[in-house]
């Protein structure tokens, strides 16, 4: 009786961790969305809100760190559980960085909207942000479902994000060369694009952590071009905690 009770309290602690991760994830997703919206719609008020919201993520990361350390000390977890807990620490750190990057974009809103930018630039930035946010959303969905079998999509989208970033970079450079007055706002936009691209990188990190939590292995590295075998991995043997 006693031991059953202890186990279920332990389970609850682990569940609480993943629930907090999900909440942080949702918060980070929303921050990035709103930062881009603030940029595209020239909305400094929304940008301010994003900057304030970053506190929630800092708070979340601290809480997860504390909780995780307490669990490790108290329960001395093994194998899967230990991976789950260490994974939570890592994912929350990545999510906190995503929030920072969103905040950085929001901070540039005022500078960018001062000059009049061609709408096509924002269209490109929006498309890049959509890619990065889709990456983050799908990765966090895998965290919920634990279905790491088809996590190969992460690498594909990583490539797309890179290609999009490169083309945006080139476009911004031509604007700067065309008219020196464009240099200031376009530099800000370049940094925004870079930040968004980094958000994609953090999403990929999270995917790797989830893969490790579920399988105990490292996610296969970049496959050679045209070889899609790393999309096929064995389903997790461990039941969902």
């Amino acid at each position: 009786m006693q031991s059953v009770h202890i186990v279920s309290a332990y389970d609850e602690e682990l569940q609480y961790l993943s629930k907090r991760i999900a909440a942080m994830g949702g918060h980070a997703e929303r921050m990035v969305e709103q930062a881009i919206a603030a940029l595209v719609n020239a909305d400094p008020g929304l940008a301010q809100k994003v900057i304030r919201d970053d506190l929630v993520l800092d708070e979340g990361q601290r809480e997860i760190d504390d909780k995780a350390i307490v669990i490790i000390a108290k329960r001395q977890p093994m194998a899967t559980d230990l991976r789950e807990i260490v994974g939570a620490i890592r994912i929350s750190a990545d999510l906190e960085r995503v929030g920072d990057l969103g905040k950085n974009v929001a901070k540039r809103v005022v500078a960018v909207i001062e000059g009049r930018q061609p709408t096509s630039l924002f269209r490109g930035l929006e498309a890049l942000a959509d890619l990065a946010l889709t990456q983050l959303k799908e990765v966090l969905d895998v965290y919920a479902s634990r279905s790491v079998e088809n996590i190969g999509f992460v690498r594909d989208r990583d490539d797309q994000i890179d290609a999009m970033y490169t083309s945006l970079f080139r476009e911004l450079l031509t604007y700067m060369m065309e008219d020196p007055r464009n240099i200031t706002p376009c530099t800000h936009l370049l940094f925004c694009a870079k930040n968004i691209e980094r958000i994609g990188d953090h999403a990929t990190n999270i995917a790797e952590t989830i893969y490790y939590i579920v399988t105990g292995d490292q996610m296969p590295a970049d496959r050679p071009k045209g070889d899609k075998t790393d999309k096929i991995v064995l389903p997790a043997a461990q039941p969902v905690k």
């Binding site: 909440a23 949702g26 918060h27 969905d141 965290y143």
Partner: peptide, 19 residues
Amino acid sequence: GGIAPGLSLSLKFRAPEMQ
């Protein structure tokens, strides 16, 4: 998509208002 019995709603619907 991808909502199966046994999945945790708070992991799937992460938006602050849903939480």
